[in-house]
Design a protein around this nucleic acid. Sequence first.
DNA 1: TGTCGCCTCCCCCATTTGGGGGATTCGTTC
DNA 2: GAACGAATCCCCCAAATGGGGGAGGCGACA
Lengths: 225, 225
Amino acid sequence: MSIKVAVVDDQALVRGGFAAMLGLQDDIDVVAEAGDGAAAIEIARIHRPDVILMDIRMPQMDGLAATKAIVDSADWPVKVVILTTFDPDEYVYEALRAGASGFVLKDISPEDLVAAVRTVADGGALLAPSVTRRLISRFATPPTLDASVVARLDRLTERESEVLVAVAAGSSNLEIAEALFVGAATVKSHVSSILTKLGLTNRAQAVAFAYESGLITPGDADLGH
Amino acid sequence: MSIKVAVVDDQALVRGGFAAMLGLQDDIDVVAEAGDGAAAIEIARIHRPDVILMDIRMPQMDGLAATKAIVDSADWPVKVVILTTFDPDEYVYEALRAGASGFVLKDISPEDLVAAVRTVADGGALLAPSVTRRLISRFATPPTLDASVVARLDRLTERESEVLVAVAAGSSNLEIAEALFVGAATVKSHVSSILTKLGLTNRAQAVAFAYESGLITPGDADLGH
DNA sequence: TGTCGCCTCCCCCATTTGGGGGATTCGTTC
DNA sequence: GAACGAATCCCCCAAATGGGGGAGGCGACA
């Protein structure tokens, strides 16, 4: 069975070029074309393509919004490949969150474009190398923490950090005292010291600080099943 | 200038095959080969290759550890492309965190392999389609939340959720009352209701709950830096 | 029309918290 | 050995919190 493809681009020339290029393949049928996002949603609903090549910059409705609308409402496995003229920055993450399966630059070679269509139709995903690079680095580097926040965290002694973690878990001073085998007064003292050093006024803020600073990461704690 | 490549694989046949394949290209020089991770570190240090093709399964030291060691200690821009026989699950994330720039299956075509080497040498990154797919979905889908936690969150009324957000920001009851233009008693009442519904005993736990449940995401708040 | 949930507020009271003073011991550093 | 930070405790006390009641208004829904 051949792959049904729709091409969405506001420039008829570009659209025609891509469509012609893909139409040459035996296993690819270009079933529809659209010139803007609104039309894209229309043709997607009608023709139910397997793959949609979607330009990101369009009048009426941009490719991002159209992608989101199509992916969210589709009741068949549609894959969207975003096409963009140049290297995008903020668009990437939005596009991926919108449900795109691919992100390629328009200077892609015909063979690569065809391969890309086949790849996503097959359930894979495909990104331009520069995009992949960004995605990896975004993924690999732990979320950047605010420098001043970390600096404040560093001012805490080991014991204080330990207490802060317990505070962040929602423990009362007494519970913390028992857990650490020290007196309640000691914990009180530590908590006071923590609040002073971090410039906070109550333990709820300390909990928030623990999460915001990365001392605690959601998932670390268990909320009692 | 040609791209210096090192090939690391414990099977001499595979290693030789890849090396020969790449050696045919004018712009690629295979400068070294290694049969295990330890040797890979050695040859990387000596030959300073631009790109290293690294098998993931090896005796002595696996490709992940070797990648990490090389990338961390290298003082030149070395790119590592991980080679694997089959579709990997947990390896992917580890590999990317270790500093790999690529992740391809060994059934890759010679042309694609050559293209991959050129791509990463050029500063791009490249992943197998299935890997890309996983990475995207990992990136696009918000971290899965514990069902029971979300269920408990749903029991809160809108006003209570509003109050919980304020509590999670570290606000006192009085501050919340002023922010919401209601009396302090009302806020107290809401907080009590929140704690009861969520099965918590104090507001610090409520803050933790807000973060753990995804009601609040680190980065949302500002800690008044 | 009656009931129910939600929001609003009230009183009372025990407990916890946070801030202000300390003190002591134990290392390390100078 | 003096000086210092860290950890451990103590006192007092004002303020905030949490739990137990309850009450009135209001909109939705049966």
